[in-house]
Write a protein that binds this DNA or RNA. Structure first.
Lengths: 338, 338
DNA sequence: ATGAAAGCGCTAACAG
DNA sequence: CTGTTAGCGCTTTCAT
């Protein structure tokens, strides 16, 4: 069996309590005592048992990242993947480890696995199940929402300003002289979809351009579906071919570009294309994709920061809205060759 | 405070032990007793405390996925991301949760965090630190290696047959009549790099084509670096332009295609390109990428299967080598339009 | 500055 | 079938 605090106590002649203090409050011990204990511990290969410690302190030092519903798979998701990555890193800096919880796991009979595991806090990405939210809250486990808001009072969330993000793309295209701007949307959560679509409509209104549903398609956010969606727009519009397409994420934009090129359109000369998320897809595309950066990394960092604040019972922990940024690349502006 | 086993015992009049049994060995109880206890538990919102349980059983139901060194970031990595995803899902099916451990975390002073957390087993992805491997082994924690092998005796690993994988790509290109086949390699771990490069050399030998180092470039596996590497090959060879490029992963291939197109070469007519990993990059590329599938999903599943077997002290748990498969797409063979 | 004792919530013999 | 007892490894009063 592994070395315990008791083994070290016996070895050094001090009590369990003193050995424990050597690791928790070293300053309370006499330097010599501390040295003796620490040396013995090192020699014997002692490692504090986090489980036993958690029994008493009621802190496990573990967080859960739970992604719900249609957004799974998490990890290979070009939007939630980077968020998770930054969550893991930020958590580590604060001394927390993170469980990543698959979509299926959370659909367990009661879905309370992370409660049983006594995590100190939970990050829900995308739209969480309301019942589950209530359960965690009732249990007193701090929760932070990422990329979603909840009607529950005092629910802390981190979101990116999608409305502004789409407006950035629209303004950019308008300033380039584009007037026939199509919208290629994905079947995201209502929360996201609605705000992005509204921004598109409002921007058109600002420009004095009437909204025309023939310029709009919603598809699954996969390359092939997006390509088909773009084809439908082109077929429908014929000579009124759009001179720009705003896409609700980068994968959609990649599909749009494929369809446009196959239809003999040049990007960006004939049709400018914008993506959303500024994901890894952008640099893989040809031409590289102009995209709205929803600050995925910062979302993860902020989520952890807020969650830690909640765990530590800090006062005035409020939600965060992050500004979006436009990353201009070759899919909207012809790049000068270097 | 939350409801404990003792609360239910008091409520129902049974002993702690009986209540415990209701959740561990329900078949041992009298149906009525069981019913009474389960109902009380449900009413009172009882949830077994996994931490307390782990104290006794010495099982936490947690695994760690540790990725070491140059391969971080894990999650956004097109190769290790899918592996992790399948690990998480397979683990869940076996009743395990998984900690994902960042590169930095593992570089902690002692790097034994997961030992302290008492995980039941560890999956190391890519090249692990030898000292760390020994530490986990010495502690008696089961370990499975993914995409790497160790000289330590009895170390269980899951790898894909890279040698065969590269041969598949080479044979494919040769059968298409390509004879001037370049190699674009990435700075991977020695283990991977060596086997893939050797396969390239051996395949050429099989074809009776002399190896020519002017056809070979090694770069960082990023799009821009790969593009530059491909440019160097083209510049160096001039009129001897290769008619095929074997790339050691898909990102490299994406960069190669960019460089080729900018040089006025048609893919695949003038130059055929193959990737490796069959990652999400393949369908984003234009043209879509022929790629060697290293069976990422199966690697994750096998890793979990083996790890569970080790945890359960099953006999004869041996390493696994998975066959690679070639996925043919438009970057090597002109696709008929559908 | 250190020790003694209690106990976190649960399971696992061992009785009965 | 059910209860009693002991104790996992550790922290934390409370003494001394």
């Amino acid at each position: 069996m592994s070395v315990t605090i008791l083994d070290i106590a016996k070895e050094t002649g001090f009590s369990k309590a003193t050995v424990s203090r050597a690791f928790i409050n070293p300053e309370l011990l006499q330097p010599e005592t501390l040295k003796t204990i620490l040396e013995a511990a090192a020699n014997m290969g002692y490692r504090p048992n986090a489980i036993a410690r958690a029994m008493i302190t009621k802190r496990t030092g573990n967080l859960a990242f739970i992604i719900y519903g249609r957004q799974a798979p998490v990890i290979t998701n070009p939007f939630y993947g980077p968020i998770l990555e930054s969550v893991v890193n930020a958590a580590q800096r604060q001394g927390y480890s993170v469980f990543i919880v698959s979509d299926e796991e959370i659909r367990l009979p009661s879905g309370d696995l992370m409660l049983q595991k006594q995590v100190d806090g939970v990050i829900f990405a995308s739209q969480p199940d309301l019942g589950m939210l209530k359960m965690y809250r009732h249990n007193g486990t701090p929760v932070v929402l990422v990329n979603h808001r909840s009607e529950l009072p005092d629910m802390v969330s981190v979101i990116s300003d999608d409305y502004q993000g789409v407006n950035l793309a629209m303004d950019h295209l308008y300033s380039l002289g584009r007037r026939r701007i199509a919208l290629l949307g994905g079947n995201f959560t209502e929360f996201i979809l609605h705000r992005r679509e509204q921004a598109y409509r409002d921007a058109l209104a600002r420009f004095g351009i009437p909204y025309n549903e023939r310029y709009v398609e919603l598809t699954e956010p996969h390359v092939t579906d997006a390509e088909a969606g773009m084809r439908r727009i082109l077929a429908r519009l014929g000579n009124d071919c759009p001179d720009a397409v705003v896409c609700m994420n980068d994968t959609l934009a990649a599909g749009a570009i494929k369809a446009l090129r196959k239809a003999g359109k040049r990007v960006p000369e004939d049709v400018a294309v914008t993506g959303y998320d500024d994901s890894v897809v952008c640099t893989l595309c040809e031409p590289e994709l102009t995209s709205v950066d929803g600050c995925k990394e910062r979302m993860g960092e902020e989520a952890v920061r807020l969650l830690c604040a909640l765990i530590d019972n800090k006062p005035d922990v409020g939600s965060v809205v992050l500004d979006a940024q436009l990353k201009v690349r070759a899919s909207t502006v012809v790049q000068t060759e270097n």
